[in-house]
């Protein structure tokens, strides 16, 4: 108090009262929600626009091809001159073969790596390995596609002589390798965020490290782990380049993974790269396939949401 009276300087409170910076800030503060709302609505509107386009074009497709024969048809011959067949099951089979193989490869290795990184690795090891994993996730898929076609397929042919040059196995494995870092990295995040006090509680009961990891940390991080797996599955379903390059273009409704297949995405690529003219049934068929693909990922996300809600262990 004494200082204030001695000094010629006005008090800080007076300076604050004189300054009008707060008023300008209040203006900005009022505008910010509107601006942010506009930015947020752009992405929402874009999504709605895409879905609407898909629906509109799909409806046109269904005027020419009955919904029932599209959903339950086991033959897909869009380019046949006489009687083209638009049964989507062969394409779904192709997509599912690749996805299932990818998941079989990626889930055990991904979660295994996550457990290692989160529970066993030293800080230094983790600091080195995690960025490498993330780089792996950034490799362009065309590179993976070439890797599948020119390396993995010939390698597999050493063991499976019947394996065709285009098949489901090789791209499936490579898609698995592609989504593995995603599962590993996101699951590791989920496990690392389990509080260490919970680990200590388990260790103090005489648990081994493995018991702590499998019976305490993994269940506690389960919702995050499931979310990572579902995200990875969604990516596998939507993966295009690897399956276009190494999977072939022979849609078949069967369980054979050694022969040529065609996935939904690979079909869209095939048609989009110039095999069909605008306005033809084939042209509209890519929208119906795209819409099916969209439904697949949507359902996956809903399932993930439900599962992670059910198994959530709150801490």
């Amino acid at each position: 108090m004494a200082q204030k009276q001695v000094s010629d300087q006005p008090s800080v409170q007076e300076l604050i009262a004189k300054s009008n910076s707060k008023k300008q800030k209040q203006m900005v503060e009022k505008l910010i929600p509107t601006i942010l709302f506009l930015i947020a609505s752009i992405s929402v509107l874009t999504t709605i626009g895409i879905v609407l386009t898909l629906i509109v074009e799909t409806i046109i497709f269904f005027k020419e091809v009955p919904v029932f024969s599209f959903l339950f048809g086991t033959e897909w011959y869009p380019f046949a001159n006489k009687e083209p067949a638009f049964g989507i099951l062969p394409l779904i089979a192709g997509t599912l073969k690749v996805t299932v193989i990818a998941v079989i490869v990626a889930v055990p290795f991904g979660i295994g790596s996550a457990i290692f990184l989160s529970e066993y690795a030293s800080d230094t090891t983790r600091r080195i390995i995690k960025p490498i994993l993330e780089v792996l996730a950034g490799i362009p898929t065309i590179v993976y596609g070439f890797f599948a076609l020119t390396f993995v397929t010939p390698l597999l042919q050493q063991f499976i002589p019947d394996l065709k040059i285009f098949n489901a196995l090789s791209p499936g494995i490579v898609v698995g390798i592609m989504i593995l870092p995603m599962i590993a990295s996101l699951s590791e995040d989920a496990m690392s965020s389990v509080p260490s006090s919970i680990r200590e509680g388990a260790l103090a009961m005489g648990s081994t490290k493995l018991e702590v990891a499998l019976k305490v940390v993994v269940p506690a991080a389960l919702s995050g782990i499931i979310a990572s797996i579902v995200l990875a599955i969604s990516r596998a379903i939507g993966e295009t380049m690897i399956v276009s390059l190494a999977g072939g273009s022979t849609p078949k409704f069967d369980f054979d993974v050694t022969g040529s297949i065609q996935t939904m995405t690979a079909y869209i690529v095939q048609v989009s790269s110039g095999d069909a003219g605008y306005g033809t049934t084939i042209y509209y068929s890519i929208y119906s396939v795209g819409f099916t693909l969209f439904l697949f990922t949507l359902v996956m996300n809903l399932i993930a949401h439900a599962i992670s809600k059910k198994y959530r262990e709150e801490y």
């Binding site: 509080p195 006090s197 919970i198 200590e200 509680g201 388990a202 103090a204 009961m205 305490v216 269940p219 506690a220 262990e313 709150e314 801490y315």
Partner: peptide
């Protein structure tokens, strides 16, 4: 030898 900690740390189960 059991242990009880400073902050309650039940398992999220």
């Amino acid at each position: 030898v059991g242990m009880v900690f400073q902050k309650p740390n039940p398992f999220p189960k």
